[in-house]
Nucleic acid binder design. Sequence first.
DNA 1: TGCCAGGTGATCG
DNA 2: CGATCACATGGC
Length: 310
Amino acid sequence: MNDITAEDRYYTAEGIVDFDPVHIFECGQCFRWEQCEDGSYNGIAEGRIVNIRYDAGNGGFGGSGSPNAGSGECSSGSDTRKRGGSLTITPCTEEEFNEIWYDYFDLGRDYGAIKECLSENDEIMKKAVSYGYGIRILKQDLWETIVSFIISQNNNIPRIKGCIERLCENFGEPVEQGAYLLDRKTYDIPSPEKLASLSEEDLAPVRLGYRARYLIETARTVCEKGLPGDFEDLSALCGVGPKVANCISLFGMQDHASFPIDVWVMKVMHDLYGLPEKDKKAMAQFAREKFGDLGGFAQQYLFYYMRDRS
DNA sequence: TGCCAGGTGATCG
DNA sequence: CGATCACATGGC
């Protein structure tokens, strides 16, 4: 298909810590990454298809070691700093890594410090963090997160993924870069303009159920008023309530204080933290006070921990 | 089979 | 406000 050397265009970054593709891609923040047989992931993001491989290096948690990484000082003492592993992205140039994937994977953030801070005086969080130690919150495209999380409501993850794929296949533009990685033709999320032009009948093959109307209406609003800029804008969109708005805020707007409360987080808050069942108001307040600006990170560790063990 | 899923909008008191 | 209900579609 493409030139034979295409597969040699990869880039490897060394010394990457607090990173595990399984944790990152299976923690429910994204829906278009798929695990390969060798444990690497193929995914569609930033208008291209890439393969992500992470090698933890010797042992992964190599006790001492001096990471020598540029970030230098690691202030807080007594912890088990990881030496870090290597992250390989294919196809990818050094420029693409620096300009696209470094931000996408939030590599400039010290997750070690975040985990330490959250775990302080919190045995529950300590377990959750230890379970999902390699989670990073991806910097995803805003429109994609809007579409994805409108679809996500009252829905399960395998079906959400199916809906998004069918939506892209039926109405999205083909993705060219990196297409050789997949054995099928692959398409991007349809633009607001494209979705705004559709009827509910047009969307029938995607089997979105009652969410089809939400998507069309939201697309039309975005075409008219532009993309949302804050939580209030988000909440004005059709099919976007408090939970979905928090997800979009967190994953698409990098508001890392957002704390989406879904059925799994409610289960954590009740079963583990002992809050009254289904009292979202109390849960939101509890999270604000306990996790503050780190609410989004806390939520991801807790969500992944609870969902994977049920 | 029946319950449930990363809830929201509409419609009541 | 706050509680209740319908909503499409399937995963398990």
